[in-house]
């Protein structure tokens, strides 16, 4: 599975996180997924999402300071509710917005390292209720693989580096957004389509996502070539 390959191959943080988000929706009974990472001050940031709706919902959750991902981050344990009523009772603001974005349930799984929670894998479904036990187990294993991968990127697992790690991930994220903008303007594609075109191109040419983004920005990869892939 390509999550494990990523660990030994050339590495790109955002690519790994995005792979985790996308694979989660393929392997689990979930329609969308997103990943938040925290720094040492406990500040959470949205790092990757499988869809725009998932990203919006996560940002909203951070803004309104309410929801399962935050609870999961604080408790370090998986968080879900049995049904919509239970969700509404616990997170009224979040649940309302979740419904507007077309989801009926949310499940949050902790990304843990040496006893610390460093982030959360969030799964959103169009059907109500929590994930099955086996889905929960696979989801948690995937979150663990991503955590280990994240820490191995620079072979030093010192917790001092976590803040820098996050900063570097954020820089790659920014680069990606800039490249999406360049590609969208050149081709007329939407931001989502631009991202997928970049990812397909990176896969097909065995390049890292970050490298493709940089080449789109400096113009050494032809935008039209990406559009056609």
């Amino acid at each position: 599975m390509d999550l494990a390959d990523t660990l030994v191959a050339d590495f790109d943080v955002i690519d790994l996180l995005h792979t985790l988000a996308t694979r989660s929706t393929e392997l689990l009974d979930a329609n969308a997924a997103g990943i938040m990472l925290a720094d040492q001050r406990g500040s959470l940031r949205v790092m990757a999402s499988s869809t725009e709706e998932a990203r919006l919902l996560e940002l909203y959750e951070l803004q309104r300071n309410e929801g399962p991902c935050l609870d999961c981050f604080h408790s370090g344990a998986p968080v879900a509710r049995a049904d919509l009523d239970a969700m509404l009772a616990t997170w009224p603001v979040f649940t309302k917005r979740m419904r507007e974005l077309g989801f009926s349930s949310a499940q949050a799984l902790p990304m843990r390292l040496h006893g610390d929670t460093i982030g959360v894998l969030n799964l959103f479904r169009s059907r109500p209720g929590p994930l099955t036990e086996s889905d929960l187990w696979i989801g948690q294993a995937m979150a663990h693989v991503a955590t280990v991968g994240l820490m191995q990127e620079r072979s030093i697992a010192a917790s001092e580096q976590l803040a820098e790690q996050l900063q570097a991930a954020l820089s790659s994220r920014v680069l990606l957004e800039q490249a999406k903008g360049v590609l969208a303007e050149r081709t007329g594609l939407s931001m989502d389509e631009s991202f997928h075109a970049m990812r397909r191109y990176a896969r097909a040419n065995q390049r890292r996502l970050g490298e493709v983004a940089a080449r789109i920005i400096d113009g050494t990869v032809d935008a039209e070539a990406l559009r056609g892939t």
Binding site: R55, L170, R173, V174, E177, Q178, A179, K180, G181, V182, L183, A184, E185, R186, M191, I217
Partner: peptide, 21 residues
């Protein structure tokens, strides 16, 4: 501002104005 749209817009503007990021 680190919102995604700010950086997406910046990327678009480089093409609209033919300028650096």
């Amino acid at each position: 501002d680190n919102r995604a749209q700010v950086h997406q817009a910046t990327g678009m503007i480089t093409i609209q104005l033919d300028v650096e990021m």
